[in-house]
Amino acid sequence: MANVMLSNGLILWQLPEWKVLLWQFRLPRVVAALIAGGILSVAGLLMQNVFKNPLAGPDVLGISQGASLAVALSLLAGIHVGGLVLMAVIGALIYLLFLLWMSKYLRSPITLLLIGVMGGFMISAFISTMEVFSKAEALKSFVLWSMGSFSKVSPSQLIYLLIMGPLLMGIGLWFSKSFDVLLLGRQKASLLGVNSRRVMLFAIIVAGVATGLSTSLCGPIAFVGLVAPHLSKWLLKTYQHKLLIPASFIIGASVAVLADWLSSGVLAGAILPVNATLSILAAPVILYLIVKKAG
Protein backbone atom coordinates (compact mmCIF):
# COMPACT_ATOMS: atom_id res chain seq x y z
CA MET A 1 0.00 0.00 0.00
CA ALA A 2 1.10 3.53 -0.64
CA ASN A 3 -0.20 6.82 0.62
CA VAL A 4 -1.61 9.50 -1.63
CA MET A 5 -0.53 12.71 0.01
CA LEU A 6 -1.22 16.36 -0.41
CA SER A 7 1.82 18.61 -0.68
CA ASN A 8 1.74 19.41 3.04
CA GLY A 9 2.09 15.72 3.92
CA LEU A 10 -1.55 15.13 4.77
CA ILE A 11 -2.52 11.60 3.80
CA LEU A 12 -5.52 11.72 1.48
CA TRP A 13 -6.21 8.04 1.07
CA GLN A 14 -4.39 4.76 0.92
CA LEU A 15 -4.13 2.82 -2.26
CA PRO A 16 -2.25 -0.12 -3.71
CA GLU A 17 0.84 0.98 -5.58
CA TRP A 18 -0.47 0.33 -9.08
CA LYS A 19 -3.37 2.63 -8.34
CA VAL A 20 -1.05 5.37 -7.19
CA LEU A 21 0.89 4.94 -10.39
CA LEU A 22 -2.34 5.20 -12.31
CA TRP A 23 -3.68 8.25 -10.50
CA GLN A 24 -0.48 10.20 -10.19
CA PHE A 25 1.28 9.46 -13.44
CA ARG A 26 -0.67 7.52 -16.02
CA LEU A 27 -4.07 9.16 -15.78
CA PRO A 28 -2.97 12.83 -15.81
CA ARG A 29 -0.80 12.08 -18.81
CA VAL A 30 -3.64 10.40 -20.72
CA VAL A 31 -6.12 13.15 -19.81
CA ALA A 32 -3.63 15.83 -20.88
CA ALA A 33 -3.08 14.09 -24.22
CA LEU A 34 -6.83 13.64 -24.73
CA ILE A 35 -7.81 17.23 -24.07
CA ALA A 36 -4.77 18.92 -25.62
CA GLY A 37 -5.07 16.76 -28.76
CA GLY A 38 -8.81 17.41 -28.88
CA ILE A 39 -8.74 21.19 -28.51
CA LEU A 40 -5.82 21.58 -30.91
CA SER A 41 -7.87 19.72 -33.51
CA VAL A 42 -10.91 21.92 -32.99
CA ALA A 43 -8.55 24.90 -33.31
CA GLY A 44 -7.28 23.51 -36.61
CA LEU A 45 -10.82 22.91 -37.91
CA LEU A 46 -11.87 26.48 -37.19
CA MET A 47 -8.67 27.95 -38.61
CA GLN A 48 -9.13 25.99 -41.84
CA ASN A 49 -12.57 27.59 -42.13
CA VAL A 50 -11.60 31.16 -41.21
CA PHE A 51 -8.47 31.24 -43.38
CA LYS A 52 -10.08 29.25 -46.23
CA ASN A 53 -7.00 27.11 -46.19
CA PRO A 54 -6.88 23.32 -45.91
CA LEU A 55 -3.32 23.52 -44.59
CA ALA A 56 -4.15 25.88 -41.75
CA GLY A 57 -3.36 24.42 -38.36
CA PRO A 58 -1.99 25.63 -35.06
CA ASP A 59 1.57 24.67 -35.95
CA VAL A 60 1.60 25.18 -39.73
CA LEU A 61 0.44 28.80 -39.60
CA GLY A 62 2.92 29.57 -36.83
CA ILE A 63 0.36 30.02 -34.04
CA SER A 64 2.23 27.57 -31.82
CA GLN A 65 5.34 29.70 -32.34
CA GLY A 66 3.37 32.75 -31.23
CA ALA A 67 2.60 30.89 -28.02
CA SER A 68 6.18 29.60 -27.81
CA LEU A 69 7.55 33.15 -27.94
CA ALA A 70 5.44 34.03 -24.92
CA VAL A 71 6.72 30.95 -23.08
CA ALA A 72 10.30 31.82 -24.05
CA LEU A 73 9.83 35.36 -22.77
CA SER A 74 8.65 33.89 -19.49
CA LEU A 75 11.12 31.04 -19.04
CA LEU A 76 14.19 32.61 -20.66
CA ALA A 77 13.81 36.34 -20.15
CA GLY A 78 11.92 36.14 -16.88
CA ILE A 79 9.05 38.31 -18.07
CA HIS A 80 5.89 37.18 -16.31
CA VAL A 81 2.46 38.57 -17.01
CA GLY A 82 -0.21 36.67 -15.11
CA GLY A 83 1.32 33.23 -15.49
CA LEU A 84 2.61 31.07 -18.30
CA VAL A 85 -0.77 29.93 -19.61
CA LEU A 86 -2.18 33.44 -19.95
CA MET A 87 0.98 34.65 -21.69
CA ALA A 88 0.90 31.79 -24.17
CA VAL A 89 -2.78 32.40 -24.90
CA ILE A 90 -2.09 36.08 -25.51
CA GLY A 91 0.88 35.17 -27.72
CA ALA A 92 -1.25 32.82 -29.83
CA LEU A 93 -4.13 35.31 -30.06
CA ILE A 94 -1.90 38.19 -31.15
CA TYR A 95 -0.40 36.03 -33.90
CA LEU A 96 -3.87 34.87 -35.05
CA LEU A 97 -5.25 38.41 -35.13
CA PHE A 98 -2.20 39.49 -37.12
CA LEU A 99 -2.90 36.74 -39.68
CA LEU A 100 -6.60 37.63 -39.80
CA TRP A 101 -5.72 41.26 -40.43
CA MET A 102 -3.23 40.28 -43.15
CA SER A 103 -5.74 37.95 -44.78
CA LYS A 104 -7.94 40.92 -45.69
CA TYR A 105 -5.28 42.18 -48.07
CA LEU A 106 -4.34 38.84 -49.60
CA ARG A 107 -6.04 37.15 -52.50
CA SER A 108 -4.42 33.75 -52.36
CA PRO A 109 -4.60 31.36 -49.41
CA ILE A 110 -1.08 30.23 -50.32
CA THR A 111 0.27 33.71 -49.56
CA LEU A 112 -1.24 33.60 -46.08
CA LEU A 113 0.31 30.20 -45.52
CA LEU A 114 3.72 31.56 -46.55
CA ILE A 115 3.32 34.56 -44.26
CA GLY A 116 2.38 32.25 -41.38
CA VAL A 117 5.35 29.99 -42.02
CA MET A 118 7.77 32.92 -42.46
CA GLY A 119 6.48 34.57 -39.29
CA GLY A 120 7.03 31.26 -37.51
CA PHE A 121 10.64 31.18 -38.75
CA MET A 122 11.21 34.72 -37.56
CA ILE A 123 9.89 33.91 -34.11
CA SER A 124 12.02 30.76 -33.95
CA ALA A 125 15.09 32.85 -34.80
CA PHE A 126 14.14 35.32 -32.12
CA ILE A 127 13.76 32.50 -29.59
CA SER A 128 17.16 31.03 -30.59
CA THR A 129 18.72 34.42 -29.98
CA MET A 130 17.14 34.55 -26.55
CA GLU A 131 18.48 31.06 -25.82
CA VAL A 132 22.05 32.24 -26.44
CA PHE A 133 21.73 34.91 -23.79
CA SER A 134 19.89 32.86 -21.18
CA LYS A 135 21.13 31.03 -18.10
CA ALA A 136 21.87 27.29 -18.27
CA GLU A 137 19.14 26.35 -15.80
CA ALA A 138 16.43 28.32 -17.64
CA LEU A 139 17.66 27.08 -20.98
CA LYS A 140 17.40 23.46 -19.87
CA SER A 141 13.81 23.78 -18.74
CA PHE A 142 12.88 25.68 -21.92
CA VAL A 143 14.51 23.10 -24.22
CA LEU A 144 12.75 20.27 -22.38
CA TRP A 145 9.44 22.11 -22.70
CA SER A 146 9.98 22.85 -26.39
CA MET A 147 10.31 19.14 -27.20
CA GLY A 148 6.66 18.67 -26.34
CA SER A 149 5.32 16.14 -23.88
CA PHE A 150 2.03 15.22 -22.24
CA SER A 151 3.77 13.84 -19.15
CA LYS A 152 4.77 17.12 -17.52
CA VAL A 153 1.27 18.38 -16.85
CA SER A 154 0.73 18.61 -13.10
CA PRO A 155 -2.64 17.75 -11.53
CA SER A 156 -3.27 21.44 -10.82
CA GLN A 157 -2.56 22.34 -14.46
CA LEU A 158 -4.86 19.53 -15.48
CA ILE A 159 -7.71 21.53 -13.98
CA TYR A 160 -7.14 24.23 -16.65
CA LEU A 161 -7.55 21.62 -19.37
CA LEU A 162 -10.56 20.01 -17.72
CA ILE A 163 -12.35 23.37 -17.48
CA MET A 164 -11.28 24.91 -20.77
CA GLY A 165 -11.72 21.78 -22.92
CA PRO A 166 -15.52 21.57 -22.55
CA LEU A 167 -15.84 25.38 -22.54
CA LEU A 168 -14.06 25.75 -25.89
CA MET A 169 -16.12 22.90 -27.34
CA GLY A 170 -19.27 24.61 -26.07
CA ILE A 171 -18.40 27.91 -27.73
CA GLY A 172 -17.55 26.07 -30.94
CA LEU A 173 -20.84 24.17 -30.95
CA TRP A 174 -22.82 27.30 -30.09
CA PHE A 175 -21.56 28.95 -33.29
CA SER A 176 -21.66 25.78 -35.41
CA LYS A 177 -24.46 26.99 -37.72
CA SER A 178 -22.67 30.28 -38.33
CA PHE A 179 -19.42 28.44 -39.02
CA ASP A 180 -21.30 26.40 -41.66
CA VAL A 181 -22.45 29.59 -43.42
CA LEU A 182 -18.96 31.09 -43.11
CA LEU A 183 -17.70 28.25 -45.34
CA LEU A 184 -19.24 30.17 -48.26
CA GLY A 185 -16.87 33.08 -47.61
CA ARG A 186 -17.15 36.13 -45.38
CA GLN A 187 -19.01 38.30 -47.90
CA LYS A 188 -21.57 35.64 -48.77
CA ALA A 189 -22.08 34.87 -45.09
CA SER A 190 -22.73 38.52 -44.33
CA LEU A 191 -25.22 38.70 -47.23
CA LEU A 192 -27.02 35.80 -45.55
CA GLY A 193 -27.27 37.78 -42.33
CA VAL A 194 -24.33 36.24 -40.49
CA ASN A 195 -22.02 38.71 -38.77
CA SER A 196 -18.85 37.25 -40.30
CA ARG A 197 -16.50 39.48 -38.37
CA ARG A 198 -17.94 38.44 -35.02
CA VAL A 199 -18.10 34.75 -35.96
CA MET A 200 -14.50 34.81 -37.19
CA LEU A 201 -13.41 36.55 -34.00
CA PHE A 202 -14.97 33.81 -31.88
CA ALA A 203 -13.33 31.14 -34.04
CA ILE A 204 -10.01 32.92 -33.52
CA ILE A 205 -10.56 33.15 -29.76
CA VAL A 206 -11.33 29.42 -29.52
CA ALA A 207 -8.31 28.57 -31.69
CA GLY A 208 -6.00 30.97 -29.84
CA VAL A 209 -6.99 29.86 -26.35
CA ALA A 210 -6.76 26.19 -27.36
CA THR A 211 -3.32 26.63 -28.91
CA GLY A 212 -1.97 28.83 -26.12
CA LEU A 213 -3.28 26.57 -23.39
CA SER A 214 -2.04 23.30 -24.83
CA THR A 215 1.29 24.80 -25.94
CA SER A 216 2.04 26.30 -22.55
CA LEU A 217 1.28 23.04 -20.72
CA CYS A 218 2.50 20.39 -23.18
CA GLY A 219 4.91 22.30 -25.41
CA PRO A 220 4.38 22.79 -29.14
CA ILE A 221 2.52 19.70 -30.41
CA ALA A 222 2.93 18.98 -34.10
CA PHE A 223 0.41 18.06 -36.76
CA VAL A 224 -2.56 16.84 -34.63
CA GLY A 225 -4.44 20.08 -35.27
CA LEU A 226 -3.94 19.72 -38.99
CA VAL A 227 -4.59 16.04 -39.52
CA ALA A 228 -7.55 15.40 -37.19
CA PRO A 229 -9.97 17.88 -38.89
CA HIS A 230 -9.14 16.34 -42.27
CA LEU A 231 -9.67 12.82 -40.98
CA SER A 232 -13.02 13.80 -39.47
CA LYS A 233 -14.22 15.46 -42.70
CA TRP A 234 -13.05 12.48 -44.69
CA LEU A 235 -14.71 9.96 -42.36
CA LEU A 236 -18.02 11.78 -41.89
CA LYS A 237 -18.21 13.30 -45.39
CA THR A 238 -19.91 16.36 -44.01
CA TYR A 239 -19.37 20.12 -43.76
CA GLN A 240 -21.54 20.56 -40.66
CA HIS A 241 -19.64 21.91 -37.68
CA LYS A 242 -22.07 20.45 -35.16
CA LEU A 243 -20.65 17.07 -36.26
CA LEU A 244 -17.12 18.09 -37.26
CA ILE A 245 -16.30 19.83 -33.96
CA PRO A 246 -16.97 16.76 -31.76
CA ALA A 247 -15.47 14.45 -34.39
CA SER A 248 -12.27 16.49 -34.67
CA PHE A 249 -12.02 16.56 -30.87
CA ILE A 250 -12.41 12.79 -30.58
CA ILE A 251 -10.04 11.99 -33.44
CA GLY A 252 -7.45 14.53 -32.27
CA ALA A 253 -7.67 13.16 -28.74
CA SER A 254 -7.24 9.59 -29.99
CA VAL A 255 -4.30 10.47 -32.24
CA ALA A 256 -2.55 12.28 -29.36
CA VAL A 257 -3.06 9.39 -26.93
CA LEU A 258 -1.97 6.87 -29.55
CA ALA A 259 1.16 8.88 -30.36
CA ASP A 260 1.92 9.29 -26.67
CA TRP A 261 1.58 5.56 -26.09
CA LEU A 262 3.72 4.70 -29.10
CA SER A 263 6.36 7.16 -27.86
CA SER A 264 6.55 5.64 -24.40
CA GLY A 265 8.85 2.83 -25.36
CA VAL A 266 6.46 0.51 -27.19
CA LEU A 267 7.95 1.16 -30.60
CA ALA A 268 11.66 1.64 -30.30
CA GLY A 269 12.31 0.25 -26.85
CA ALA A 270 13.33 3.79 -25.96
CA ILE A 271 11.24 6.83 -25.10
CA LEU A 272 10.77 8.99 -28.18
CA PRO A 273 9.74 12.64 -28.32
CA VAL A 274 5.98 12.61 -28.92
CA ASN A 275 6.37 15.14 -31.76
CA ALA A 276 8.60 12.73 -33.65
CA THR A 277 5.96 10.01 -33.44
CA LEU A 278 3.22 12.47 -34.41
CA SER A 279 5.14 13.70 -37.44
CA ILE A 280 5.82 10.16 -38.59
CA LEU A 281 2.12 9.31 -38.20
CA ALA A 282 0.64 12.48 -39.64
CA ALA A 283 2.97 13.69 -42.37
CA PRO A 284 2.12 10.89 -44.85
CA VAL A 285 -1.62 11.53 -44.32
CA ILE A 286 -1.15 15.23 -45.02
CA LEU A 287 1.03 14.58 -48.06
CA TYR A 288 -1.66 12.26 -49.38
CA LEU A 289 -4.29 14.96 -48.89
CA ILE A 290 -2.19 17.59 -50.66
CA VAL A 291 -1.43 15.36 -53.63
CA LYS A 292 -5.08 14.31 -53.88
CA LYS A 293 -6.25 17.93 -53.75
CA ALA A 294 -3.69 19.12 -56.27
CA GLY A 295 -4.89 16.31 -58.53
Binding site: D180, V181, L184, L192, G193, V194, K233, K237, T238, Y239
Partner: peptide, 11 residues
Protein backbone atom coordinates in the same frame (compact mmCIF):
# COMPACT_ATOMS: atom_id res chain seq x y z
CA UNK B 1 -19.16 17.68 -48.90
CA UNK B 2 -21.89 20.31 -49.38
CA UNK B 3 -24.68 18.71 -51.40
CA UNK B 4 -26.85 20.86 -53.65
CA UNK B 5 -29.90 20.71 -51.36
CA UNK B 6 -27.72 21.60 -48.36
CA UNK B 7 -26.12 24.45 -50.27
CA UNK B 8 -29.51 25.93 -51.15
CA UNK B 9 -30.70 25.95 -47.55
CA UNK B 10 -27.40 27.03 -45.96
CA UNK B 11 -28.19 30.18 -43.95
Amino acid sequence: FIKLTEYLTLG
